[in-house]
Write a protein that binds this DNA or RNA. Sequence first.
DNA 1: ATGGTAGACCTTCTA
Length: 270
Amino acid sequence: MTRLELSHSGWMRIATWNVNSVNARLDLLLGWLADVAPDVVCLQELKCVDEKFPREPIEAMGYNVETHGQKSYNGVAILSKFPLTEVQRGLPGDEDDVQARYIEAVIEAPLPVRVASIYLPNGNPVDSEKFPYKLAWLERLQRHAADLLKLEERLVLAGDYNVILTPQDAKTPQDWTGDALYQPESRAAARALRWLGLTDAQTAVGVDPHAFTYWDYFRGAFERDNGIRIDHLLLSPQAADVLEACEVCRRERGLEKPSDHAAVMATFKF
DNA sequence: ATGGTAGACCTTCTA
């Protein structure tokens, strides 16, 4: 049986969440997992090495866990109620890249799907070496995405893309002039990735296609909804075919000790 | 127009 054939009918939910330190966010994360119970969760900005990832309490909630951690910065993981196979750590294309920003696995579920958890480089300040690193990383991601699309599987590339694609994806786009997230080069590279044939789940079926996913910690940004939309689930045609819904989990952003990002969750029906 | 907050961690970097 190939990955496209289905032996059951039902639904599956896949979420992405930049938690800004998984240990600082553990109580919030566990509460959200208990309330929402997504089948698959892509986490970004773990800010810890694999040995310090809070594996036990998450496994106790019925999740399989695969991590790609790093001391202090970055770090990504995939949690899944179903077995994970073909785990790949690191984005192909640069042997010298030591930053932990990419992990990929196949979810062996009734609706099989290949999932990647992505933490794209921020790239600020623009006049530093961080900006060309961001652009090179986007190019590498595009090359790898092109390879994955050739498999013609259900594919979900989920994560913090750190790019404000259009003016509608920011409350005050003028404030982002000169920022790496809104540079023409960043936006062009992010568009090129999508032109491969990837569908943004939120834009496709979201209740609000431009609902924000990130708000600054300061100046009461969340209370004024002064946010940006930078967290996405990008779908192959085979995954878009079964997409049913997509929502932003805003509630946790308003609780005690929140991440600066909200989770985004897509529902697939089959 | 600048500085505001948060997290990891060794005093400053990253976001």
